[in-house]
Design a protein around this nucleic acid. Sequence first.
DNA 1: TCCATTAGTTCTATAATACAGAACAATTGG
DNA 2: CCAATTGTTCTGTATTATAGAACTAATGGA
Lengths: 111, 111
Amino acid sequence: MRPLYHPPLDEITVQGILYALSDPVRVRIFTQLARADCAKTCSEFLHVRKKPLAKSTLSQHFKILREAGLIRSERMGVELHNSTRCAELKKRFGPMLDAILRAYELEARSS
Amino acid sequence: MRPLYHPPLDEITVQGILYALSDPVRVRIFTQLARADCAKTCSEFLHVRKKPLAKSTLSQHFKILREAGLIRSERMGVELHNSTRCAELKKRFGPMLDAILRAYELEARSS
DNA sequence: TCCATTAGTTCTATAATACAGAACAATTGG
DNA sequence: CCAATTGTTCTGTATTATAGAACTAATGGA
């Protein structure tokens, strides 16, 4: 089992971020992590919006978020503790991420 | 041949926009359109960054941009005149699009 | 120590999507 | 009306996504 890869800040791409955030499940995961004040495990997201997700699928989604540079996952015993890399990302991409999250939020409210 | 579909402003989604802009060819097309002061035809993009594109592929890319609500395509004789819907989009999504384009621009400069 | 449990990952097969060549459609100019 | 031009749609292949099954890693107890 290969170690979890986290790209360094300067290898993170806009393309990768947009792709990662163009999926509703991943957006949900990311926004929950962004809102949370402490790290969350993967399995907390096995039921996203009432839709049961296979854990292999969920694992893939986390991998995509991680390798896009959006989140950081640390092994803590048997589980992974996931948190966002928002602070770093803000340094590199300015207001982009905030603007995206805000747009998603507004969209959710209006529907 | 079915008429070109342009979603009304309130049916445009963040997800659709991010997905459309997570492909380098489409980003190139969109940014060129955004910079241009007049509409551009599809075939002007047959060579994007020295890579020859099949016109069927290009057509698909335009369709994705169009149906994501990012561009508007009008038949003018035998060709299509494409332009962005930036003004409308700004009303609905605020600074998101600008922030994305700016991030892509900075990324391009630094590489 | 060893076994059961828990949390995630990887493997494998199938379903959905992207790409590009070929045929087609629509418009215009000669 | 025919030829040329621009773009779309059709069709087959290649890549990517999903989810079940098997596997790995860490822990807590008997």
